[in-house]
Amino acid sequence: MASPAYTFSPVLQEFEIPVADYLKSHTSLTGGLVVSALIFHHFDDGSRRILLIQRAATDGFPLKWEIPGGAAEITDKSVFDGVCREVLEETGLKVTKILRKADTKDEWEGRRGGRWRKITFVVEVEGSEDRKKTPKVKLSPEEHQDFGWVTLEEIENTRFEDGTEIEFAYEKQRGTILGLF
């Protein structure tokens, strides 16, 4: 396997395997695997924000907010490659480091059957080393129509600074974000 374009903590080695192998070793997951990424940006003043993206009005969960992610594909070389692909497809950002895994257990029965699992990773992206400006996001308009770099206070209050409500696609995701902020 070629060397990936990202680095990761050695404690996460179990995810540097093909998605097909991950699913074979977790036989209860008959639906599939979903991966998502918490992308923080740290500023010189010590503050930090997280990237949220708003689903398109024409997509599932219209106009709801979430973090980047989606289904890991059997063709992904690894679970990490699935995360990197999803982040790139949805935000135009390139993952450079996978720092840790969220300590959550998120499994459910799919609408069309099958058991699914979601794994959320904290990642860094290209451009995150510049603490004066946020990385440039380029959304995929078929899936998402807006984005915001939000503070912990905005997540807690489910409101942007301007008072606009942040309605999450999945309330459990808000808890995951709060747990890692």
Rank of each mutant, 00 (worst) to 15 (best):
A2Y: 00
P4C: 04
T7D: 15
T7I: 01
F8D: 07
F8K: 04
P10H: 09
E14C: 04
I17S: 12
P18Y: 10
V19N: 05
D21E: 14
D21S: 14
S28G: 09
T30C: 12
T30P: 12
G32H: 05
L33W: 04
F43C: 00
F43V: 00
D45H: 06
A57R: 09
G60E: 11
P68I: 01
G70V: 01
A71W: 00
A72E: 07
V79G: 10
F80Y: 08
V83F: 01
V83H: 02
V83D: 01
E86Q: 11
V87I: 05
L88E: 13
K97G: 07
I98Q: 04
L99K: 08
R100G: 15
D103I: 09
E109T: 15
R111Q: 13
G114W: 06
R115Y: 12
F121T: 07
V123C: 14
V123D: 07
V125H: 08
S140D: 15
E142R: 09
E143V: 02
E143S: 13
D146T: 09
D146R: 10
F147R: 04
F147L: 06
F147K: 10
W149K: 03
V150F: 01
T151H: 04
E153F: 03
E154V: 01
E156C: 02
N157E: 09
T158Q: 15
E165V: 14
E165L: 13
I166S: 03
I166P: 02
Q173W: 00
R174Q: 07
T176A: 12
T176G: 00
G179E: 09
